[in-house]
């Protein structure tokens, strides 16, 4: 029993990181139908900028704030320099642009920073809590709380605010969005800023547990993408549940079978779910009439 609990704890921690990455996908996807594969690089930037700002002598909290703000600016620049000029191109082309941007950001990070593995101290120390014979790190609680907080904020944003609806309206029908007075370029700018900030927050919260380096982005983007697909792309609830399910699946496979199988097992389950429910667990079913 303590064993199972331990696996669940570590699965929950990893899952919360995946959930944060998946939540980052949600906004840009909702605004433009684009899956932004540079999302993982935002996570990397959040961690790396914090590492170097902290090493330069800034307090951790300030360093993290700077990292999140700087990453948001980089997200906006990505939109202005790479996505906006290609407007009108098919969504697939835009997705490929984000893959290119991710390779570019990784390269720049390896030059501006370095190729070492880094971490910074956990926020509330490293003394684990003991619960039911298993242990959990205080930083894990930070990660989980961060995932839940971002989820709630996004859910409120999309269901309760007119700005959130404007984001949804922009992806659903850009022409009509302009006709009701929405500045659709501004919506895109906002989406990239928010997505990048959420990604960077994930990096800040997770780095004390997972460590970071210039190349952690790809794996995270893929896992976050898988989690978002599992839950239903575009839905914050789906991102949260998908991320946590994926993390727990991996932890259980690694614990009871072998850590060699953990990626494979997770992806097999995802394929099965998508086979039965192509829209994901919480995906919107299309109800359009022409």
């Amino acid at each position: 029993m303590p064993e199972l609990l331990q696996f669940l704890f570590s699965g929950l921690t990893v899952g919360a990181v995946y959930a944060l990455v998946a939540l980052g996908f949600t906004i840009i996807y909702n605004a433009s139908d684009v899956v932004n594969f540079a999302q993982g690089e935002f996570v990397m930037l959040g961690g790396m900028i914090t590492v170097f700002a902290h090493a330069a002598g800034l307090p951790l909290l300030l360093a993290a704030g700077i990292a999140i703000a700087a990453t948001a600016v980089i997200g906006v620049a990505l939109n202005k320099l790479a996505i906006e000029p290609a407007r009108g191109a098919p969504v697939v082309s835009l997705i490929i642009i984000t893959i290119g941007a991710s390779i570019f950001l990784r390269g720049v990070a390896s030059l501006v920073f370095d190729k070492q593995i880094h971490r910074f101290p956990a926020f509330s120390g490293d003394a684990p809590f003991r619960i039911g014979g298993a242990t959990i790190l205080p930083q894990s609680l930070w990660v989980i709380a961060g995932g839940v907080a971002v989820f709630i904020a996004l859910w409120l944003f999309f269901t309760r605010t007119l700005t959130g609806k404007a984001v949804l309206a922009t992806s659903n029908n850009r022409l009509a969005a302009q006709l009701v007075g929405i500045n659709t370029n501004w919506v895109m700018t906002l989406s990239f800023a928010l997505s990048a900030a959420i990604g960077a927050l994930a990096g800040v919260l997770a780095t004390p547990i997972t460590n970071t380096s210039y190349d952690v982005g790809i794996a995270l983007a893929l896992k976050g993408f898988a989690a978002a697909m599992l839950g239903g792309m575009g839905n914050p609830k789906g991102a949260l549940v998908g991320g946590i399910l994926l993390g727990i699946l991996e932890a259980l496979t690694a614990g009871y079978l072998s850590s060699q199988y953990k990626d494979a097992a997770a992806f097999i389950v995802i394929l099965l779910v998508l086979f039965i429910m192509p829209q994901g667990l919480f995906g919107a079913r299309q109800t359009e009439r022409v």
Partner: peptide, 23 residues
Amino acid sequence: PAYRRIGRGITQSPEGRQIFTNL
């Protein structure tokens, strides 16, 4: 730009309705 004409009092019901089908 279009989004600034609304505030001036010009609105349009476009050809083909163009409603937000997901809302």
